[in-house]
């Protein structure tokens, strides 16, 4: 039940939307997310979109991960942090 998954909004009608989680379609209440549009990714939890996913932040975390990976692979044995 605690599962929340990133879902893409595929249509909006009033404060309800249809969202796709990897191709499976669900209904989602959109009352908690402001100004979302078709194509946006939201976090779906128990039938409600509870937050908009932040693309930039996701990229930033991935960049950090990549940096760590490069550091450890590029400098075997050297200090990495």
């Amino acid at each position: 039940m605690c599962l929340s998954l990133p879902a893409r909004i595929i249509s909006i009608e009033g404060d309800m939307g249809q969202v796709s989680v990897g191709g499976v379609i669900f209904q989602a209440g959109l009352q908690m997310v402001e100004g979302v549009r078709v194509g946006d990714y939201v976090l779906l939890h128990a039938g409600f979109a509870i937050e908009k996913m932040k693309e930039e932040e996701a990229m930033e975390t991935l960049r950090l991960l990549k940096e760590m990976e490069d550091a450890i692979n590029g400098s075997d044995g050297d200090e990495v942090c």
Partner: peptide, 14 residues
């Protein structure tokens, strides 16, 4: 209505 802060707002909206 079961669940933590994540689920409760959905109950509230309803």
């Amino acid at each position: 209505g079961v669940g933590f802060e994540t689920t409760a707002p959905g109950t509230a909206v309803t």
